[in-house]
C-alpha cells in the first residue's frame, strides 16, 4: 500500500521533471512559416531556373534566413506575451541540440561554395551537387531528432522522416528528371511540404488540447 503510494509519487516526479525540460513555444507557427517559405522558394527556384551550383547554394542559404529570423521573432513574441525570458532553459537546450548538425551542414556547404569557384556548369556536375540537398535533408533530420529530446514526442519522428527520406532518396539515386527539378523538388518536398503538413497537424492538435 505504502509502496504503491511511493511509486506513484516517483512517477509523478519523473513526469513533471520531463515536462519542465520540454520546449513547446510557437511550434505550429514556426512549422507553418517554414513550410510556406520552403514551398514558395522551391517553386520560385524552379521558375527562375536557378541551376548553377553557386546560385543554388546562395539562393537556399538566403531562403533559410527567412524562416530562421521569422521563427526567432515568433518565439520572442510568444515569450514576451507570456512574460517569460526568450532565452529560457528549454530554448537553450534545443538550440544546443540542433547546433552541431546545422553547423556541420553550413560548414560543408561553405566549403563546396568555395570549391566550386566560378565554374559555370550545370547543377549536379560539380562535386555531386545534386546530392547536396539530400545532405541538407539528412543533417537537418539529425538536428531535429536531437532537439526532439527536449521537445514533444512527435518531433523525433519528424526528424526520422528527414533522415530516412534523405537516405532513401540517396540510395534510390537521382530519378530520370532534370537535375534542377530534382534539387529544388527535394527542397520543396522536405523543407516545404513536410513542414507545412506538420504545422497544420500541430495547429489543430494544439488548439484541441487547449480547448480541452
Amino acid at each position: 500500500m505504502e509502496s504503491n503510494w511511493a511509486s506513484e509519487h516517483l512517477l509523478v516526479i519523473r513526469t513533471l521533471m520531463e515536462r519542465a525540460a520540454v520546449y513547446r513555444r510557437a511550434l505550429a507557427p514556426m512549422m507553418l512559416l517554414s513550410g510556406v517559405v520552403g514551398s514558395a522558394a522551391a517553386a520560385a527556384g524552379l521558375g527562375l531556373g536557378i541551376d548553377s551550383p553557386r546560385g543554388f547554394i546562395g539562393y537556399w542559404l538566403a531562403v533559410s534566413v527567412v524562416p530562421l529570423v521569422g521563427s526567432f521573432l515568433l518565439v520572442r513574441r510568444e515569450a514576451l506575451r507570456e512574460r517569460e525570458p526568450v532565452w529560457s532553459p528549454p530554448t537553450r537546450r534545443v538550440a544546443q541540440a540542433v547546433l552541431p548538425a546545422l553547423t556541420a551542414g553550413l560548414l560543408v556547404t561553405l566549403v563546396i561554395l568555395v570549391k566550386v569557384g566560378d565554374a559555370d556548369v550545370p547543377l549536379g556536375n560539380v562535386l555531386g551537387m545534386a546530392w547536396l540537398p539530400l545532405g541538407w535533408v539528412i543533417l537537418y533530420g539529425c538536428a531535429i531528432h536531437a532537439a526532439g529530446f527536449f521537445m514533444p514526442r512527435g518531433i523525433k519522428l519528424f526528424g526520422w522522416i528527414f533522415i530516412v527520406g534523405g537516405c532513401g532518396l540517396f540510395a534510390a539515386g537521382i530519378p530520370d528528371l532534370p537535375r534542377i527539378t530534382f534539387a529544388h523538388g527535394v527542397m520543396g518536398l522536405f523543407f516545404g511540404a513536410l513542414h507545412l503538413a506538420y504545422g497544420i497537424y500541430l495547429y489543430f492538435t494544439e488548439n484541441k488540447k487547449q480547448a480541452a
Binding site: 512574460r83 517569460e84 529560457s88
Partner: peptide, 14 residues
Amino acid sequence: VSLLAASPELSFTE
C-alpha cells in the same frame, strides 16, 4: 519542486 529540480530556473507563468 519537481519542476524546479529539472530546470535551472523557471518563470512564475511557466
